[in-house]
Amino acid sequence: MAEGADNETTPRLRLDREKVRGEFGKRLDSLSEQHILACYQCGNCSSGCPLAEEMDLLPSTVMHLVQLGQSEAVLNSRSIWVCASCLQCTVRCPKGIDIQKVMDVLRQMALAEGIDHFGPDQVDPRNAAEVPQPGLVSAYRKLST
């Protein structure tokens, strides 16, 4: 590894007990009805995710960061909006974690913090005139307040 290269691109994580065992993880667990700490980082979710290559954080990285209470990093990531809710990660998780649900909750948390990602004004009108309604309804429900 080139000297210092990693430090420039990857910001160091500051871990402290308050953050790691803080409200964020508990709220995420309760809203998603999942047990985030059950994830043992096998990477199955990331390897099966058809959109992983467009994400800034791999699904397994998102899981790791939420285990460490890093709310800011995940709520401001591109990954949570790139996820298409296809449930591939969910059905392949050997620990039975509904990872798609975790993504849903993260979107909901980000939207509640005012990070409104998407609105009708951002849809190409030609596209909106053609896309079947389930596409429009789910995009608005998943990606906007």
């Binding site: 058809p50 467009e54 909006w81 296809c86 591939q88 596209n127 596409g135 995009a139």
Partner: peptide, 20 residues
């Protein structure tokens, strides 16, 4: 045959759906 087509990303990120 079971890999996602992009679903509602067709509305928010049409290019992603096109790639899939």
């Amino acid at each position: 045959r079971t890999v996602c087509c992009g679903s509602y990303l067709s509305v928010s990120f049409p290019e992603s759906s096109a790639r899939l």
